[in-house]
Each structure stands twice: as C-alpha cells, then as structure tokens.
C-alpha cells in the first residue's frame, strides 16, 4: 500500500508540520541562532520542565532519604540504584534474563496481534461472526487476565510457553477492540466514492477500510506491546527459572531493593523503546492521522 515515494513525501510533510522536532539537536544548535533557540524554548516549555522535574525528584530522593532517616534497605538512594544497575548490566546472566523476557513479550505480542487482526477483521466484516462471538468476547474481557497466569503455568509449564500465552492473551484484547473500531471507522462518503467508481467490497476494504483503521491499529499496538511485557513478567512471577520477572523475585527474596529498582528501570526502558518503535512506525504508515485516536481496554 505504501510505496517508497509516499514514504519519502511523508517525511517531507512531517518535517514541514513540526519543524522544531525535525533536525537533530546537534544540527539545530549549529544552524539556529541564539534568538531562535530562545523562541523554541518559549514555545516548548516542556523541553525544560520535563527533565527539570526528573532532576528535582531524583535530587530530592537522593538527599531526603538519608535526611529523613529512611532505611536504605527499604528505599535505596538513586546513586545506589545506578550502582546496582551497573552491576546487573555487566553480568552476562542478567542479559540472558532480559533476552528471555524480551522473546516472551515479542512472541506473545505477535501471536496476540495476529489473532486480533484476524478475529477483528472477521467481526467487523461478517455480521454473523460478530453476533456469535461478541457476547463471549465481552464476557471474557471482564475476566482479569492476570488471574489466569497460574493456570497457564500449570498447563504450559515453567518454560517460555506459559509466558508467551500470557503475553498473547493480555495484549489481544486492546488490539481486538482497536481493530474492530478501526475497520468500522471508515468514512461513509469515501466508501460511497469508491462504490460509484465500481469498487468491489474487497476493493473498498483494501483501499478505504484498512487504511482508515491504521491509526486505531497503531493505538492498539502501542497499548498491546506494553501489556505483552506485563504479561510476560507476571507469568514469570508465578513460575519460571529465568527472565526479568524471575530476577525481580530473586532480588526481592534477597532483600536487594536497589537490585529490584535496577530491574524496574530496565523494564521501563524496554517499554519505552517498544513504545518509541511503534510511534515511529505509526508516523510512517499512518502519517495523515492526528495523534489522538487511542482506545484503551
């Protein structure tokens, strides 16, 4: 659907729309005079405020923890967490744990997304499928999926499979809701336009419904990937021999709170990276849409 030409033009469009973000900071600093930099900051106070709040909180944490006499074992200072993070990152075993959790999340995400795409398409296009399945989906959606984790461990064992299943199930629902809503969101005028020119139902699906659904699909992917990581970690809590969730429990048992924080930092960074990748993909493939179509689940 998207040709190379389109993508190139898309970049040009994007650059035109939010020019301040376009150049890398280095390039901007080289080109822009000081006055322009000041204007950029006035237009985007968040560029200062967001890191500012971070620095403030970390500093307060760092100095208030000893000042208020909080036990370092319970709430370690940020510098201690950074130390623990350093220790972890230089440990080969840690990277194995991370790899396991990553693979579980990605496999689960892929399965969940694929299932949601197939089922969502069927539900949105075939009335009978919708009528038949919707009650079950609504009923199942109310089940707290996390509560299924022990069951999956019993069924699929202590290995990766049970976590992949958990990640798939938990990322499936937000994706499904967005696929169904997205495929239904097509503008009636656009559908009519294609019909007048002789388009078949499949043509209408391919050329209008599917592109119209893309912003929703990306919203679903964005939520889904975070849910997939959550599912993998929860699965590891219940029963596993490796993975970041397992590591989190180990550090907990050893009362290594700084180590726990280090794992949490790594998990957050993984989530952020995944979110960033999906945002970039969205910018490229759903470039025409405003960034506000998000349906939670």
């Amino acid at each position: 659907m998207t040709t190379t030409k389109e993508t190139q033009d898309d970049d040009a469009v994007g650059a035109g729309r939010d020019a301040p973000h376009a150049g890398t900071p280095a390039a901007g600093a080289l080109k822009a005079p000081a006055a322009r930099r000041r204007r950029d900051l006035r237009d985007h106070p968040e560029w200062v405020l967001v890191p500012g709040v971070f620095v403030l909180v970390v500093l307060a944490w760092e100095y208030l923890v000893p000042a208020l006499g909080v036990d370092e074992y319970v709430l370690p200072r940020p510098t201690r967490i950074v130390d623990a993070l350093g220790t972890q990152l230089t440990d080969a075993l840690f990277w194995t744990h991370m790899k396991v959790t990553l693979l579980e999340s990605v496999y689960g995400f892929a399965v969940g997304v694929a299932a949601a795409l197939v089922l969502g398409t069927a539900i949105s296009q075939i009335r009978l499928v919708e009528k038949t399945l919707m009650p079950y989906i609504v009923a199942f959606q109310t089940v707290p999926k996390v509560a299924l984790a022990p069951l999956f461990v019993v069924w699929f064992g202590f290995g990766m499979t049970s976590k992949v299943v958990m990640a798939a199930v938990i990322s499936f629902f937000p994706m499904l809701v967005n696929v169904v809503e997205g495929l239904r969101s097509a503008d009636a005028d656009r559908v009519q336009m294609l019909t007048v020119f002789g388009a078949s139902k499949f043509d209408v699906f391919r050329r209008v419904r599917l592109p119209s659904a893309l912003p929703f699909i990306f919203a679903g992917l964005d939520i889904g990937i975070v849910f997939a990581i959550l599912g993998a970690v929860v699965g590891e809590f219940i029963g596993a021999k490796e993975g970041l969730g397992y590591l989190l429990l180990q550090t907990n048992y050893n009362f290594d709170i700084a180590g726990m924080f280090a794992v949490l930092v790594v998990l957050s960074v993984l989530g952020l990276i995944a979110h960033f990748i999906i945002r970039q993909a969205r910018k490229r493939f759903a470039f025409w849409a405003e960034d506000n179509t998000v349906i939670g689940a």
């Binding site: 503008d187 336009m193 759903a286 470039f287 025409w288």
Partner: peptide, 11 residues
C-alpha cells in the same frame, strides 16, 4: 461529490 472526498493517505 459535495466534499472532494480525497483519500488522505494517497497523493
């Protein structure tokens, strides 16, 4: 058509 009804994802 009344509105141009162009597809925004196409050139």
């Amino acid at each position: 058509f009344q509105a141009a009804t162009l597809l925004p994802w196409r050139t």
